[in-house]
Nucleic acid binder design. Structure first.
Lengths: 204, 204
DNA sequence: CTTCAACGATACCGATCGGTATCGCGCGGA
DNA sequence: TCCGCGCGATACCGATCGGTATCGTTGAAG
C-alpha cells in the first residue's frame, strides 16, 4: 500500500527544497525580503527552520537562490520571445515589451522583485546583489543586440530608453491604478522603436 | 557668558527635532528604512531614543515626516524650474529632466527614496504610503499640465512616458556605472518631447 | 533486514527591534 | 527668584530576529 511515487494524502508533496523555494517566492514577492522571517517561510512550506538551514547556508543565500530562479524565468521568457520572431528584431523588442506589459497586473502593487530587492539590500556585498547585477547586465546586452540587429543607429541609447521605460512602468504599478498601464507601455515602446528607426528602415 | 543664541562649543547645535530629521535623512537614504534602528538615528543625531519619541509618535511617523520633507524639496525644485522658464512648457519639461539627471550622481547606488520606500513598505496602511502616493500624484499632474500647455496631442501619454523614463533612470543608478546616464537621460527626454510635438509645433 | 541519511519537531541561543518608565539636570519665562 | 518643561541618560520591557543543537522517526538503498 505504500508505493513510493504516490501518497494517498497530501497529493504527492514536493521535496522540501522546492517547497521552501516556492514559499519564499510567494512571501518575498508579496511582503518583501526583510519583513519575512525564516520561521514564516518554514511554516508556509510545511516544514521547519532546520530543514531550511539544511538546504541553504543562510537566509541571504536563500534570497540569492530565489532571485536566481526568477532571473532564469526571465531568461526563458526572453528566449521564447526571440524564438517566436526569428530574424525580426523589431518584433522581438515589442515581444519583450509585451511580456512585461502583460505581467504588470500580476505584479500589481508590488513591482519588480529585482528593483525591490535592490532597495531592500543596500549592502553591495550581499550575495543577491551579484545575481541582480548579472541579470540586469544580460538583459541589457540582449536588448542592445536586438536594437543593433534592427539596424537602429544608436542601439545602446535606444536599449537604455526601453529599459528605463520598462522599469518605470513596473515601479508605477505599485501606487495608483494599473488601468491601461499595459497598453500605455506598449504604445510608448512602439513609439521609441519607430522614432529610432526613422534613419534606418531595415528589417522590422 | 551664556548668551542664549550662541554657544561657544558645538557651534550652535540645531534643536533636537531637526537633528533627528537630519540624521534620519542620512541614514534612511543610505541604508534604507528597515535596516536603520531608532537607536542608530538617536546616536547620529547626538540625542537619545526618548527624545525621538517626544517628537514623533512612532518610527513609522518619523518615516512619513521624512518623506514629507523630501517631497516638499521636490516641489520646491519643480517650482524653481517652472519659474525659470515662464510660459515655455517645453523648457520646463527639460528643466525637470535636468533636475533629475543632475541629481543622479548624488543618489548614486541608492536610487530614489520614494521608489525604495515603496519597496520597503508593502503595507498600504503605512502612514508613509499616503505621502508617497500624494507626491506621485502631484508630480504627475504637474507634468501632464506642462505637456498640455506645450500643446502636445496626448499629454497623459507623454507625461507617463517621461515619468517612466525618469523613474527607470533613477532605478538604474543603483547597479552598474552611472557613466553618462545623465546625458543619456537628457537626450531621451528631448527625443520624447520632440517626437510628441511633431503634429503640434507651438511654443517650445 | 539492516543501515544511513534526510526529515520533522522542539527547545534554545544571543542580539536587536520598537517602545516605555524614570531619573536628574539646566535653561527660559513669569 | 522660582517654577516647569524640554532635554539627556539609563535601564528595562516583550517580541522577534537569524541561526544552532538535539532529539526520534522514516524511507529508501544496499
Amino acid at each position: 500500500m505504500t508505493s513510493p511515487a504516490r501518497r494517498p494524502t497530501r497529493v504527492a508533496k514536493l521535496p522540501p527544497r522546492e517547497r521552501i523555494l516556492d514559499a519564499a517566492e510567494e512571501l518575498f514577492r508579496s511582503e518583501g525580503i526583510q519583513r519575512v522571517g525564516v520561521q514564516a517561510i518554514a511554516e508556509k512550506a510545511e516544514t521547519t527552520k532546520m530543514a531550511i538551514y539544511r538546504h541553504f547556508e543562510t537566509k541571504d543565500e536563500l534570497v540569492a537562490e530565489w532571485l536566481r530562479i526568477v532571473a532564469a524565468d526571465y531568461q526563458t521568457a526572453f528566449d521564447r520571445v526571440e524564438a517566436e520572431h526569428p530574424g525580426r528584431p523589431g518584433e522581438q523588442i515589442l515581444g519583450v515589451a509585451r511580456f512585461i506589459a502583460e505581467g504588470l497586473p500580476a505584479i500589481s502593487h508590488r513591482g519588480c522583485p529585482f528593483i525591490n530587492s535592490l532597495a531592500e539590500l543596500p549592502d553591495r556585498a550581499h550575495p543577491a546583489r551579484q545575481v541582480i547585477e548579472q541579470h540586469k547586465e544580460r538583459q541589457t546586452r540582449r536588448l542592445v543586440g536586438m536594437c543593433a540587429q534592427a539596424g537602429l543607429p544608436d542601439p545602446e541609447q535606444t536599449a537604455a530608453e526601453i529599459t528605463f521605460v520598462l522599469e518605470g512602468a513596473q515601479v508605477s504599478t505599485q501606487n495608483g491604478s494599473i488601468h491601461r498601464t499595459g497598453e500605455r507601455l506598449m504604445r510608448i515602446v512602439e513609439g521609441i522603436v519607430d522614432r529610432a528607426a526613422v534613419s534606418a528602415p531595415t528589417t522590422r
